[in-house]
């Protein structure tokens, strides 16, 4: 109960908290300053290597620059962006189309393969050894991976040797425009499956054993357990793998440069390779920067789409 007859003590009471609040503010400001001081190296790093290049790229995307003389940047408005989609431009088709197909194919293959492998590994002994084996391609240089697979795909290579031994004719995997992109997708999926296997095996470990025990008591078969328990509970790991693999696929450059250089024709030309050519071979940095921003938008939209799709199903990263 409040004593309404008691003398009012509001003034000193408010003065004291004011002093305290001021002191707290000062302390907080000091703390903030110290925090920013500690953050400064990281912020400077981001400013120098992220914000500044991003701003420069934005400037270039609305300019014409040959790449040699910084004083020779001429503003051209949105011409670089419209040029990307103009008649005769190869950016939308086949370059952007190939990029999306490459990323989709890589995600689909790597995801399916790694789910299968991770599930098998989860039931094996020496799991660390298996995970290491599957992770090895990740620590191998892309140039080595690309060149080895290139030789395997050659008309006289290992893959065609197997086909010939089975009585089938040879396939010019990297020289035939119909097989070149799928052939490179297989390599990218193989090379990137290692990290997905790691994430998914970790995900499998986090599935509580009680679910499996309950399923066993109910008489559920292996397939039912996989579809009804394992896969739904793996969804957060799958989302992570899906998003990261898609991002990697959309930005792929090195493997395609090593294996096909975008050929034959433009069958394996992808956005990152096209950007590199525009900037460093043709000296058209404006178009290259505009292409980079278009790719950025594509990546952003697809990633947001993936997140939305998974969140709708009640999962989060």
């Amino acid at each position: 109960m409040v004593n309404t007859l008691a003398p009012e003590t509001t003034a000193p009471a408010t003065r004291r908290p004011q002093r305290t609040a001021t002191g707290r503010d000062r302390a907080r400001r000091r703390q903030s300053a110290v925090a920013y001081l500690f953050l400064a190296p990281a912020l400077l790093f981001f400013a120098a290597f992220l914000v500044l290049p991003l701003g420069f790229a934005l400037l270039l995307s609305t300019s014409r620059w040959a790449g040699f003389d910084l004083s020779d940047i001429r503003p051209v408005g949105a011409a670089n962006f419209t040029g990307l989609f103009a008649d005769g431009s190869t950016f939308l088709a086949p370059v952007l189309t190939n990029t999306l197909l490459f990323a989709l194919g890589t995600v689909a293959l790597a995801l399916a393969g790694s789910v299968l492998v991770a599930t098998c590994i989860d039931k094996l002994r020496l799991q660390g050894l298996w995970r290491t084996l599957y992770f090895l391609p990740m620590v191998t240089t892309v140039v080595a991976v690309g060149n080895v697979w290139k030789y395997m795909y050659e008309p006289g290579g290992l893959v065609n040797g197997v086909l010939n031994a089975l009585g089938l004719g040879s396939v010019a995997f990297l020289q035939d425009p119909h097989t070149a992109l799928p052939a490179v997708v297989v390599v990218q999926a193989w090379a990137s499956a290692g990290s997905a296997v790691l994430v998914l095996t970790a995900g499998l470990k986090s599935v509580p054993g009680t679910y499996y025990e309950a399923a066993a008591l109910d008489g559920a078969g292996a397939v039912t357990v996989f579809w009804r328990i394992t896969l739904p509970l793996l969804r957060p790991s799958l989302l992570f793998v899906c998003v990261t693999q898609f991002l990697t696929g959309l930005q792929s450059f090195a493997l395609i440069t090593v294996m096909t250089k975008g050929g034959p024709g433009n069958a394996t030309a992808v956005a990152a390779l096209e950007m590199y050519r525009q900037a460093f071979s043709y000296g058209d940095w404006g178009t290259a920067s505009a292409a980079a921003f278009v790719l950025f938008v594509v990546v952003l939209v697809i990633t947001l789409g993936q997140l939305w799709l998974f969140r709708r199903r009640g999962e989060d990263t």
Binding site: A86, D87, T90, Q175, D176, P177, G265, A267, S281
Partner: peptide, 30 residues
């Protein structure tokens, strides 16, 4: 580079002679 891509497309059957010539003219002229 554009010429090379179209020549390769011709050699690998992606384009006919007519298509390759038209495509080169359109792309290279631009």
């Amino acid at each position: 580079t554009l010429l090379r891509a179209n020549i390769e497309a011709l050699w690998t059957g992606q384009q006919s002679v007519d298509q390759a010539l038209r495509s080169i003219r359109r792309q290279v002229d631009r």
